[in-house]
Amino acid sequence: MNETHPSIERIVDYLHGEVSPAEDAAIYAHFATCPECEGKRAEEVAITDALRAYARATEREMPPGLATRIRTTAVDRQPTAWQRVLLGFRPAMLVPVAAVAALAIYVGYDSWHRTAIATPIKAADYVNNHAAMAASAPFGDAAPPLTLTSDDATP
């Protein structure tokens, strides 16, 4: 609402009782002193009355027995197995199923990817392990100092 005149939206809200009590009182007081806004209020009231009158004039009674026939038809027409399958492809079903599938594929791929990644191993690590075990041979070399290969991963 600007300082002097309420907007047309606020006038509509006022007519539907959707403004605060303080604003309601202020708008009501304003209508008493502002013919321009009072005119807009009267137009809105007239439009609302016209719409209600038209709705009442065009209102039709539901034919007798229609609701019963609809219910009966719905019960008789159970979907076939194929129709049930197709029902699964409704967006309401398909979207969450696709989301779950995508998550499963991601997790599965990630798991597979981790195992499929080849771990780099230094030739020296093989040689040191070979030398350590071969030290038992009658003239085997002394085993080299033992290191933990997991240390290579720590900074």
Binding site: T115, A116, I117, A118, T119, P120, I121, K122, A123, A124, Y126, N129, H130, M133, A134, A137, P138, F139, G140
Partner: peptide, 19 residues
Amino acid sequence: GIRTFSLFESSRASTLEAA
């Protein structure tokens, strides 16, 4: 008795690195 060789086997893939 003098010469030796080792065979390492794993079910996980690895690559060889040479320094």
